[in-house]
Amino acid sequence: MTPSRNPSGGFLPPELAARLRERFPQVRDAAEAAREALEAFEREQEERQRRYQEEVERAKAEGKPAPRPPRKEEPAVPRYRTPTFEVPREVFREVMEFLRDDPAFRMDYLSFASAIDWKDRMECTYHLWSTVHNHELLVKVPVDRDDPRIPTVSDLWRTAEWHERETYDLFGVVYEGHPDLRRILLTEDWKGHPLRKDYVYEDPDWLVELARVRQSEVSGVQPPLGERG
């Protein structure tokens, strides 16, 4: 295994990215799009700088004080330090099967399957890595936030079984075709999915009851005093 060519993050050879886009035109290369947006931003900045220079010269010719230079702006373009692809739900299964079985990709190792809650939308994330070629990529699939559903990949990578259970537990994403989809970290009777941004914690009833019993032991009075329960 050769060391990754990009020591700060993941790496995917550009020819492979092109191959994936060629095979699935619906797939969007987020890093590529971000790069284009960044270039557009830089062009815009150059344009503004050029206009400013013109203004300065005009002001000089007219004998007026020089105008203030434009504020330095940070690009609002997200950086993708790991190769990231946005895959529509319709072709998701096909893309994943392709990535696993294609001899040039051989993404045989699923690092994790998870999700991101963007408040207005939700994305399922998968990180794939190849034990053979040592390249990796991140797959993001937009899903409906109110009713998140996505086909399972646990038949392609066994490890996805638990990762999907965890994501179901914490985000409420339903993986269609999963052999055993139930909560894994929280108790069976838990209300809500805590990693969603709008989650509000509520004490379970049995915990309130347990605390009440304990409180009655402290006060030594049966039945307990007060409204604490």
């Binding site: 700060s8 950086r79 790991t82 990231t84 690092s111």
Partner: peptide, 9 residues
Amino acid sequence: VPPGEVYTR
């Protein structure tokens, strides 16, 4: 940290 995403290990 500027907006963006990264997966490191």
